[in-house]
Design a protein around this nucleic acid. Structure first.
Lengths: 184, 184
DNA sequence: CCCCACATGTAATCCGTTACATGATTAT
DNA sequence: ATAATCATGTAACGGATTACATGTGGGG
């Protein structure tokens, strides 16, 4: 599974405490792999007992005390192994498409407003990505070690572009469509 | 919390047995909401005790005997409620992007082959969707009640188009990129 | 001193996955 | 008869989600 490897990656980029990791999983890595603080603490515990990471030996106390973790060589090796290993893409799972399919049977009442809301959310996300692109990857000078990061960001941009485009199209369709409510 | 509603939708489209549902979850509905037969049987049991569906009273025996289910009015109402209710989009979770991010730290060795494999898989999926489009939605005549179904199919087509495009671009980048292996 | 934000955790539950089990039907 | 296949389930496990619990430090 992927959460431990997401954490190893984040810790290699920068040794951090649990809460710092949580913050970084709200953006950056979290853009394509999200996690809550409970998941993170549990996984940090596992990774430590497995010998993949260790707490930096500055403070060792129990609760309420900041603990920094760093990746050990076994952790780096495991991450490299996982990264190179072949993995099948997971089948799509999208609630909105499922709801449209259901709406074809029980009626479209109420769903259009949510389509608009989703369009707005995806537009915001797209704008956020494009800001990052302008800030971190100004046109012209692409350091080769940043190419991978830029590539990942483009996936996010292209994906949000797809969603905004499709949702816009969907709303146009809805305007030409009668609101059906076959059941009731 | 979407599987029960996916099943209700499938059963409204056509009353089915558990295994028939499983087959239909391998295509059609399964294109955006997949499920195994174990999930389906468990959920059918729940839906029945909750009074949302019932087994058609032709055969009632125990194991090995085909059982057909149909949706009751309470089930239809619940599906309509769920369809109209506002829902937030789930944050993206993509292993491939995560692996690229990890590769930026531990080296890109081995990942290019998997990018090619994914590109191939997405191309096949795209071709499958386009076949369905040509078969079920020939250009020119769009019955209004099919508009929603076509819209959903287009989401799949556009999504696979995004993936194939992005993966192609990614592989071009890789050809210009040295294979890094900073750790070892 | 008390409250609140910070920081780390525990517990309960649900969902998805994998493996296994069992009855019925059909083909050889 | 028996093997393969169809059909319906049970059991065990693990990850994700939600709610709750506990300790620490700083500001009013």
């Amino acid at each position: 599974m992927s959460l431990p490897h997401a954490i190893l990656t984040a810790l290699l980029e920068k040794p951090s405490s649990g809460l710092e990791l949580t913050r970084r999983f709200d953006k950056s890595i979290g853009y394509f792999w999200s996690a809550t603080h409970q998941q993170i603490y549990r996984e940090l515990g596992k990774l430590e007992t497995e010998g993949y990471i260790r707490a930096l030996p500055s403070q060792q106390p129990t609760r309420g005390q900041k603990k920094r973790y760093e990746v050990l060589s076994a952790g780096r090796a495991e991450l490299a192994r996982w990264t190179a290993a072949s993995q099948d893409p997971k089948p799509l799972r999208d609630t909105l498409l499922l709801r449209l399919r259901a709406a074809a049977v029980v009626g479209t009442a109420g769903i259009e407003a949510d389509l608009r809301r989703h369009l707005d959310l995806h537009r915001r996300q797209l704008a956020e990505y494009e800001e990052i692109q302008e800030r971190d990857f100004p046109p012209g000078k692409d350091a080769p070690q940043d190419r991978l990061q830029h590539l990942i960001l483009r996936a996010g941009i292209d994906l949000e572009t797809f969603w905004t485009g499709w949702l816009t199209h969907a709303l146009e369709e809805f305007e030409r469509l009668p609101v059906t409510d076959p059941a009731t």
